[in-house]
Structure formats: C-alpha cells, structure tokens
C-alpha cells in the first residue's frame, strides 16, 4: 500500500491533502498496490466520505483520546508504528506545516530519509523524485533511498483530481502504543485574535509596496487605493525589514503567499523571495521606474514611472468610476 497522511480540521481534509492523495494514487497505480490513508485527531473517523472519491481503499483511523488535540511527536509516532506494522511501499503527506512536521517526526523515528515538497515520484530502486527548491523557483531531481520512501507534496503545485472509480474508504481502527513522553509536545492552548479588514491571503485585490515606496508614510497612498478596491496592503521583505510594515504584511517565501485576482506591485523589483509569494496572483500590474525589472517583465501590465504620482492618480480614477 501507499500510505497518505491526511491533514484535516474536524474531519474535513484540506486541499493540500487531496492534492497529496492525487500524487499518491498515481504512485500506487504504478506499483499495482492500494491507496490507504491515515487520519488522526478530532473528527478523523468521519473523514472517509470526503476522501473516498480520491480512490482511498482503507482509512486507518488512529483511535486514541490523547491524540485528539494536535501533538506532533505522538502523531508522527502513530504513523511510524502503522508503517512498521504494515510495510507500506511509500509514506506520503501534504506539505502543510502539520504535514511536514508530522512526517518528519515519523521519518526521524523510523530513521528513514524524507524528501520534502515533491511534485513527481517515480518508483524504482532507488525511487526518483523531483522536488521544489528555493520555494519552487528551481527543481531538484533526486534519488530517495528509503524503506519506505517518505515524502511530502507542496500545497497548490498539483491539482486535486478524483479517481475514475472511487475507493471504499473502509474504516480500520488503529491503536498505537504512545509513550507518555511523546505527548510532551502538544497544543496546550489556542489564543484567538481579532482581525480587521480583508486578510492578505484571501483578498481579491492586493496592493503591494517595496523599496520604491521609501518609507512607512509612503504606504498611505497604497492603503487608500486598497481601501477603494476593498483589498489588502502587503509589502516586500525590504518593506517589512525596514519596519515600514509589520511582518504579517510580508508577501514572500518567508511571509504570506497571496492568490488575488489582481496584484498591484508598486516599487517592487521582484527578488526570488518575493516572486514566490505572489506566484498565485491571477493577474499582475507592475508600477515601476525600471522596465527591465523582473516584476515588470513577469507582469501582465505595467505603468512606468514614479509610484508616488501614479498610485494616487489610479485612486482618483477609481473614485470617479465609482461615482
């Protein structure tokens, strides 16, 4: 079997898990073996109906009250134990924060290699993988010499596709033996915060600023435009490192990855760090003085010149158009 870890909230798997299942199913088919899933935590027993369409024949539900709340080390140990008991041909997980973490714990316990962020996997001795590097700016071809090979699939690199024929997703209860000290890392509390306005991650329009904005104060004109469009403001790493914007507003490899209808990038040259964060934007309008900058070259549209004149002019036109 090919075993896939499902990252879910109360029995609803996230999109990245369905994408991981899609890659795992392709591998299982090549190997002529079954696709199994493992689900842990609150609501995990109800996951079958949402993953059956992806060709899952068996869902291993980890039944242990101590593991209802997230506990990465113990969750990883459950996967390691299930793998030891069943000898899967491969263990796959989504490249979400939890997916990477839990699979790494399982790999550490089994003392097996793990290849993170794989977009292709070809069976063989050894297994051949293609995986993201530099936040998907480059690809690495690599040999993965694991028994079983363990790998994660980066979110939103591959589409989730249902199988031609759904699987039975038959529920099998698995009771791991969890040592007390494996529970030393677990969520002890959740603090809720109040957020105002549209979040960067979900905004339909994002107005981003970089070095060209020049100061904290310079972002005011970007905020005005974003306000008129019901969008959110973000910044490059230059903007957050200079303290012009809080880090939460950073668009980039080490910040937020955005996916708006339109990204208006003002005074941003387009370093790799930033381009990885705005790759999900459907359309890009660049405002820049340099027509050879990466941001302008990769944009759909560009206006050349000083953003301090252009951005307020756009805001004015939008106000006029709204009447």
């Amino acid at each position: 079997m090919v075993l896939t870890f499902i990252d879910h909230v109360d029995g609803t798997p996230n999109e990245a898990s369905l994408q991981a299942l899609t890659l795992a199913r392709g591998l299982a088919r090549q190997l002529g073996t079954e696709l199994h899933a493992i689900a842990i935590g609150s609501g995990a027993d109800a996951i079958g109906s949402s993953i059956a369409p992806y060709g899952v024949s068996t869902v291993h539900h980890v039944a242990d009250e101590q593991l209802e709340a997230y506990a990465p080390e113990a969750w990883g140990s459950s996967i390691a134990q299930l793998a030891s008991a069943n000898g899967p041909e491969a263990v796959i997980g989504p490249g979400t924060e939890r997916g990477q973490e839990v699979l790494a714990h399982a790999a550490a316990e089994l003392d097996q290699p793990m290849a993170a962020n794989c977009v292709e996997v070809t069976p063989g001795e050894p297994v051949h993988v293609v995986r993201h590097q530099w936040g998907s700016s480059l690809l690495e071809e690599a040999r993965l010499k694991g028994d079983p090979p363990m790998l994660t699939v980066p979110p939103h690199a591959l589409g989730a596709q249902a199988a031609d024929a759904p699987g039975d997703a038959q529920l099998a209860t698995f009771e791991p033996a969890i040592e007390e000290r494996r529970l030393r890392v677990r969520v002890s509390d959740v603090e809720t915060t109040q957020t105002e306005g549209v979040s960067l991650k979900e905004a339909e329009v994002v107005v981003g600023g970089g070095r060209g904005v020049g100061s904290e104060d310079g972002f005011r004109i970007l905020e005005e435009l974003a306000n008129e469009l019901g969008g959110a403001v973000g910044g490059s790493r230059v903007a957050t490192n200079n303290g012009w914007r809080p880090h939460d507003d950073q668009i980039g490899l080490t910040g937020t990855k955005i996916a708006p209808q339109l990204y208006i990038a003002a005074g941003i040259s387009g370093a790799v760090q930033h381009m990885v964060g705005c790759k999900g934007a459907k359309h890009v309008l660049a405002i820049n003085t340099d027509d050879e900058s990466t941001m302008v070259q990769k944009a759909d549209w560009a206006i050349l010149g000083d953003l301090h004149e252009i951005v307020p002019a756009i805001t004015e036109e939008v106000r006029k158009a709204k009447g």
């Binding site: 329009v205 944009a299 759909d300 206006i303 252009i310 002019a313 939008v318 158009a321």
Partner: peptide, 20 residues
Amino acid sequence: QVEILGQGADAAPKVVQILR
C-alpha cells in the same frame, strides 16, 4: 508578454478598464 500601459499618471484611466 507584458503590456506597457504607459508612462506616469496619465496611464491611470487604463487601470480602471482592467479593474472592470
């Protein structure tokens, strides 16, 4: 290919068309 809408503030009206 990138489409250059123009130079400076004069290009702003074209952005409204794109937004629509």
